[in-house]
């Protein structure tokens, strides 16, 4: 495959995983948890590096899950001690992120890991770092990791579809009929974490938040059905990724920035033109009802 094709495949995998996860982030009203976790996984990655002395996929995923769960747990804990929920989120994630930043600059030295890279990602380098796979041939390391994470996300979203639905809509009911809403919450936070870690290389910690939240919010405007929302959100994720790449190519600028910008364009388009919730429909509908 060509260099451009690998970039597009990689970005699309980010778009799909983030699109799927994002739907439940939005519906569970935990969108800002994505922001928190996208920062704290940095600490997880650094810790994984300090333990294994290499930046490898599986170790990074484990480190990410650890950091994500730690974040979710600490936020909940601080909140239970009477700190406002949003404040406890702000306190925990900045502190854990800061520890990550300090560790990078003191303990890591010249590894393939720096703060700029972690925040902004660098998808342009991804096709150069390849691994050899039987049957498939040479595949960029980051793309392989993203593909595995996409499969994991897809598996968990479809296998526990009705459990995600009921715990998102009415967690009290879920608990009362024996579905462990709290365990589901932490499982979900783990999925957010691995998606974030895998997307790190491609888009970085800041832009991944755009990929997680904006396509899902756009999809929400177009449909009243959860399945359709999941599919649309993934499609919007892919569209943002691809169009973002070409925008960046065209005006010669940051790829991850352009992708995040594309998610915003799609949202704006949805916000204006969506038949049910769009601005235009609000003016048009009264005429239809006459």
């Amino acid at each position: 495959m060509t260099y451009t094709a690998w970039i597009i495949v990689t970005a699309s995998l980010v778009g799909m995983s983030c699109g799927l996860i994002g739907v439940f982030l939005v519906l569970r009203k935990t969108a800002m948890m994505a922001d928190a976790i996208s920062h704290t996984v940095l600490l997880g990655i650094v810790l994984a590096f300090l333990v294994t002395k290499e930046v490898s996929g599986p170790a990074m995923l484990v480190g990410g899950i650890f950091a994500g769960l730690l974040t979710a747990f600490l936020v909940q804990w601080l909140h239970s001690l009477d700190v406002q929920h949003d404040a406890s989120m702000g306190i925990i994630f900045t502190t854990l992120f800061a520890i990550g930043v300090i560790l990078i600059s003191t303990s890591i030295g010249n590894a393939h890991l720096d703060i700029q890279h972690a925040l902004m990602g660098e998808i342009t380098f991804i096709p150069f770092d390849k691994v050899s796979l039987p049957l498939v041939g040479e595949v960029p390391r980051a793309t392989l990791l993203l593909f595995i994470v996409f499969l994991i996300v897809l598996f968990f979203i479809t296998a526990f579809y009705k459990e995600w639905k009921i715990t998102s809509f009415d967690s009290a009911l879920a608990v009362s009929i024996g579905i462990p809403a709290i365990a589901m919450h932490y499982l979900f936070m783990s999925l957010v974490s691995i998606t974030t870690v895998a997307s790190f290389d491609a888009v970085g910690a800041i832009m991944v938040v755009a990929m997680l939240i904006t396509p899902a919010s756009s999809a929400y405007l177009w449909t009243d059905r959860l399945v359709v929302m999941l599919i649309l959100s993934s499609i919007f994720g892919i569209l943002s990724a691809i169009s973002g790449y070409y925008i960046a190519y065209w005006i010669d600028t940051s790829i991850s920035g352009s992708m995040a910008f594309s998610t915003g364009l799609i949202f704006m388009f949805s916000f204006i033109f969506s038949p049910k919730h769009g601005i235009i429909s609000k003016y048009v509908q009264p005429i239809k009802n006459l």
Partner: peptide, 21 residues
Amino acid sequence: GSVDWDFPTDALDVVTMGLYG
């Protein structure tokens, strides 16, 4: 008021949730 009625689902689906257990 304890749930979000803007959740993307229909009446039948909400009732079916009572049977998920």
